[in-house]
Structure formats: C-alpha cells, structure tokens
Design a protein around this nucleic acid. Structure first.
Lengths: 221, 221
DNA sequence: CGTATCATTGAGCTTAGTCAAAAAGTGTGG
DNA sequence: CCACACTTTTTGACTAAGCTCAATGATACG
C-alpha cells in the first residue's frame, strides 16, 4: 500500500472493446492466488498491471511455472470446465480484469464482432505460447536467458526501447526457463561482462546488443 | 502409395460439425510441406491421419521443432495474416483437412454455434500447447522422454491402452524435446532395461509402468 | 545384395545442477 | 536514522547430466 515508486505498467483498457463492458477489476499483493488449478473456470482474466506466474503442480509435488503473465496478456481461458493451472501474482500492485465467462460467451453468441474479438484474443494466447515454446527449445542456458530478455523487452513496452524492468525474481525466471536460479544469475553476469546487456540495480536491464541475443550468443572461453 | 500395412490412425470426421462441410482433404508423402512459415494463412488445418512436425527457422539457420501434429490436432490457426511456423509431414499417407479460413470465419459470423465450435477448437490447441510446455519444463532427459511417451499414448488413442506406434524418428523426438537424438535413444534404452517400457521393433512402444513415467522416473545407478 | 537411413552404444568433454557461503537489497521496529 | 532479520542475488567448488564425435548394428528400399 505504501509504495510510491510504481514502475509497473498499466494497460490501456479503453480501446473500445465491447468485451470491456463486462470487466471487473481485481487487485492483488505479491504471491496471491488469482485463480487456482482445478477450480471452476468461471472467469476469463486479463493482466492489466504488475505480473503473475502460471503454475501447475506436478505429480511429484513440485511446482512448475508454465508461463509468465504480463500486462495485456489474457489467461484463464480453457476448453474444459476447470482451470488447468494456477495464476499467482509476482508483483505488488498487480491488477487484473475479470470477465464472467458465461457473460462473455453469451455476448459472443449475440454479436459476431465480439465473437471475432474473443477468437482473436484466444489466438493471441496461442502466439504467446508458441513463442514460449521457442524460447524453451533453445539449447544452452545463455540462449534461453537471452531469448527471455528479448521476449520481455517486446512484452513490456512501457520503458525506453531496450530497457526492461523485470517484475519477477531470478527464481521465477529459473522455473520458467527450466534451469536453476544460479545458472540464470551466471548467464546474466556473463552477458553483462561481455557487454551484451547492462544493469541498473538488479531488476533493471538494458539490452546493448540485441542481435547477439537473437543469434544465440555462445560464451566463448 | 504401395504401403499395405497402414497402421496410422484416422480421425472420425463425421461427428456432425458444421465446419466439416468446408473441409477439403489433402494427402502427403513424408517430409512434404503442408504450410510454410511466412506464407499467407489462408487455411486452417486438421490432421486426420499420419503426423507432422511444426517447425520454425531460427535466426542462426537451425530448424527447431515446436510441436508434433497428430490425428485430431488443428493447426495453422494464427492471429496474424501469416503462418508463424511450417508444418511438414513425418509419415507416409499423411492426410489433413483444410478449411478455407475466410469461409470458416464467415460461417462463424452467421452462426453462433459454429463460432463456439471454432472457439472450443482454438482452446483445445491452447491446452495442447500447455501440455507441451509442461513436458519441456521437466528437468531431466528421461523425464522428458517419459512425459513425451505418456502424451503420445493419450493422443494416439487408436491402439490398445499403453501401446504406442511412434510415427516419427528419434531425431524428430529429439528436436521436439530439445535434447540430442543420442540422449533420446539412451533414455529409451534405460526405461526399457528398467522394465518401465518395452519394445516391439523400434517404433512400437508398450508402457508397462505409466506411474513411473508420470512421477518423473529418476535413473538410480 | 548393396546402399542409405535410422538407431544404438561408447568415450571424452562441456555444460549446468547442487551445495554452500558471501554479498547486496529490503523492510521493520527501536 | 540505525540495527537487525530476512530475502534475493551472486559467486565458488564440486558433481553429474547430457552433448559431440565416432563406430557399430538394424532396417527399409531399390
């Protein structure tokens, strides 16, 4: 509550979407559950500010992060009746819009324009998931971290180009990329030393050589 | 053409979907391109028989497999105007249904039931992608291969339970899981020796202990 | 029967994970 | 404002997992 520097971005919700008339605004602190795996999927959500991790519980009890939700991202969309993952806020002052699923679908039935809007929105989720698969399919840890940073720089458009303020911890990044937190740290240090990125504090990153990140920069010696 | 033992499955296309009236049937040999990254996305597709790999070309020139398409799977759905990946058949006698995108969307505009059908179909693609992310997020190679086999056994429902006929090569599996082909082979051999799976030939796998695969079987000693 | 592709196995090397500790932030209460 | 506890991040040393290179078996196809 008593945070003055609110550097997280806010999505413009007033772009005239007919769906937005259904939106209800929800606010969360850090590490709060927005929706839970197995619960009835009554709402669709859109991240408006802050961020969240999408996690599933594995049979062996460990949590696995299967996505990061940033401003603009829709989530909680499922074909079945239940959410197939949980979403937990990673930042203070996380704000999401909630759309009652039933209302949204009814609106889609009565209005083809809304139906197309929903379809486009769902297709954008697919595009995001495919990008994530691409990142995770990269071979070395440094490549993954590099692709991750590039993706973040595209999905967090609020700052100056090439400047990123990461809303999540190294541990979240590690679980997201399927590597250890120590390796994330080492990769970042390596990229920093080589002049590919630079830091201001721990969470603010500046990309100096995006080409090197794209090409899958291999640490030589 | 001259293959008598056709062990690939065929999806029942006659479940009364109104979309199916638009379907055009296309047949492919092995390693043929069904749709290409960057081409105009004029069609939606559904795999009916055989299989395909979904690949993207990386900036460094290497291909990366970001998905395997099996009977029942829809693909080629994109928010933008172009396909963001290529699809290449991996089996002989691969059959896909093609739906002219414009027609499908028009039909969705005029018929809310079709609109919901499309939405459900797109949401099922999301579920599939999430499963894939879950598999790729597993830590060890043997866990990935194990999860992969389980996923295949669910997505290839044509055979007796626990029996899988893999339509793709070890190399395709390797690229799909982001590990080397040798490691795939070693993991399979290890699972075989430990009695978790068994082989009949190279491509036909039987799952003997699905629990061990789910739990993320760790090779001890 | 020969050739090409696919699959398995081995040896050595590189990468990343694990365990451990130190350093740098962050928040709280005195 | 400072001391303290707590979390996050970095770094180091060691270990283990998986990659590369290479050779050997299978399998399919002409």
């Amino acid at each position: 509550m008593a945070i003055n520097r609110s550097e997280t971005s806010m999505v413009d919700s007033g772009h005239g979407s007919r769906l937005d008339t259904l939106a209800v605004r929800l606010c969360f602190h850090r590490n709060q559950e927005i929706c839970g795996q197995g619960q009835r999927a009554a709402y669709w959500y859109r991240m408006m500010r802050g961020g969240a991790r999408r996690c599933v519980l594995r049979p062996d009890g460990k949590r696995q992060i299967v996505g990061l939700l940033l401003p603009g991202d829709f989530f909680g969309l499922t074909a079945g009746e239940k959410y197939d993952y949980s979403a937990e806020s990673v930042a203070e002052e996380t704000v999401v819009s909630a759309y009652l699923r039933r209302s949204a679908e009814d609106l889609g039935d009565s209005d083809p324009i809304v139906a197309r809007e929903i379809r486009t929105l769902v297709l954008s989720v697919i595009a995001q998931l495919q990008t994530q698969l691409f990142i995770m399919g990269r071979t070395t840890a440094t490549e993954k971290v590099g692709s991750f940073l590039l993706d973040m720089s595209h999905r967090l458009p609020n700052h100056a180009p090439g400047r990123i303020l990461l809303p999540m911890s190294r541990y979240d990044i590690a679980d997201y990329l399927g590597i250890s937190a120590e390796t994330v740290s080492r990769s970042l240090s390596s990229l920093n030393q080589r002049g590919v990125i630079s830091f201001k504090g721990k969470r603010q990153v500046r990309i100096l050589n995006s080409r090197a990140l794209e090409d899958g920069y291999r640490a030589a010696a």
